[in-house]
């Protein structure tokens, strides 16, 4: 609990430094110009989306094996934070694409597989929000996450063969200079802290909810 303010401060400073680096220090990219600066938060967000869904996958596997409600609460929290960062990716992505290429969307493996991943975990979220709170729903959700997360490998592979344009990220990465790396990695680090803080808060909210339900059951047993 003592660590929380420390990490909050660290995250805030990190984000401030990240912004300063992004807007002041990062070099002006030759062809995409200012829009390329979206890259420094867009790309780490994409990585964090994957991390969120991988954690959800891990929590779900754990839940299927040990049936601990906490594992399920963790999986749910990870999916929610993953969805948040995914939402950042799919909104900043088209903004970048429009400014860089003049179109909002391109039929491209990484874009499309991210969209499908979001669809799968949006279904997960809808299930968790509106499908009920029973143990069966948790199991259903766990199965969904366990099937959905690895599915993305197949989706990506299929769309890659489907063909399409080149992601602007590839262009940037091939010419990723050291002065860009100096901006990218601190941004990633700062967002990682934000990710961890949000995950912690979300997990605690779900865990508290579990306690509330446990106490309610106990009260019901006591006949109140």
């Amino acid at each position: 609990m003592k660590l929380f303010p420390v990490f909050t401060a660290l995250g805030a400073v990190g984000i401030a430094v990240g912004h300063w680096l992004t807007f002041e220090v990062a070099p002006m990219e030759r062809t995409m110009r200012a829009a390329q600066r979206i890259f420094y938060f867009h790309v780490p967000s994409a990585w964090l989306t994957y991390i969120g869904f991988i954690l959800c996958f891990g929590g779900s596997i754990a839940y299927l094996y040990n049936r601990k409600a906490k594992a399920d609460a963790f999986a749910l929290a990870a999916a929610e934070v993953g969805l948040l960062f995914g939402l950042i990716v799919v909104t900043t992505g088209p903004l970048w694409a429009k400014a860089a290429w003049g179109v909002w969307w391109v039929w491209e493996p990484r874009l499309t597989s991210m969209a499908l991943l979001m669809l799968i975990f949006a279904a997960y979220w809808v299930l968790r929000t509106y499908g009920g709170r029973g143990e069966g729903v948790r199991r259903f959700a766990a199965v969904l996450a366990v099937f959905g997360a690895p599915n993305i490998l197949f989706v990506h592979d299929a769309i890659r063969r489907f063909g399409g344009a080149q992601h602007p990220d590839e262009v940037v990465k091939s010419g990723l200079t050291n002065d860009m790396r100096v901006v990218l990695y601190p941004s990633l680090f700062a967002l990682l802290i934000v990710f961890g803080l949000l995950l912690h808060l979300r997990y605690r909210a779900h865990r508290d909810q579990l306690t509330v339900r446990a106490i309610r059951r106990r009260l019901a047993r006591l006949g109140a």
Binding site: M32, R33, A34, A35, R37, I38, F41, H42, T91, T92, L95, W96, K98, A99, A100
Partner: peptide, 10 residues
């Protein structure tokens, strides 16, 4: 446009 989109993204 590039600047506008940059601010919008952030």
């Amino acid at each position: 446009l590039r600047y506008r989109h940059l601010w919008m993204a952030y």
